[in-house]
């Protein structure tokens, strides 16, 4: 019985710690989104994304994925591809980037709450995603 208690308490304490981080964060995120900051963020980051072959339209799903998660980013991509706003090659580059780096805020905060250093959680993930997307961009032939 004491084993179950121990696990239960450890789990609940962990959830409490994470809740203290996640709830204020989600409020901030909602305010940021309602004020149109996502579009502004997209304009700022679209420059480094041009290097890996993404247009401003192509960068948008990645920004959505980085902030809200893979499912949301994928939804935007599927929509963009259907409407012909991004090429297949762009979809492959974005797919690679967002598979590696998505839900950066939530994922980072969970492990930050557990004691991992903030920058270590963020920087390597972004670097690896960027490098891989760059390689895919260079290796994939432009379509006819």
């Amino acid at each position: 019985m004491s084993v179950l208690w121990e696990g239960l308490l450890q789990g609940m304490r962990g959830v409490g710690t994470i809740a203290l981080v996640v709830i204020p964060l989600m409020i901030t995120l909602e305010i940021a989104e309602s004020n149109g900051w996502l579009q502004k963020l997209n304009r700022v980051v679209s420059k480094p994304f041009r290097t890996i072959g993404l247009s401003e339209e192509g960068a948008f799903p990645v920004v959505v994925a980085m902030v809200f998660g893979l499912t949301f980013g994928s939804g935007v991509i599927i929509n963009h591809v259907r409407r012909g706003q991004v090429s297949r090659k762009e979809a492959r580059v974005t797919g690679t980037f967002m598979a590696l780096a998505h839900a950066l805020i939530e994922d980072t905060l969970i492990f930050w709450a557990l004691g991992a250093p903030f920058l270590l959680l963020l920087a390597p993930r972004l670097l690896v995603a960027y490098a891989m997307a760059y390689i895919v961009h260079k290796l994939t032939p432009a379509e006819s």
Binding site: L4, G7, L8, Q10, G11, M12, G14, V15, I18, I110
Partner: peptide, 14 residues
């Protein structure tokens, strides 16, 4: 989060 974290913590404790 709680639905997954708490049961996993218990299972690992076991």
């Amino acid at each position: 989060l709680a639905k997954v974290v708490v049961p996993t913590a218990i299972v690992v404790a076991i």
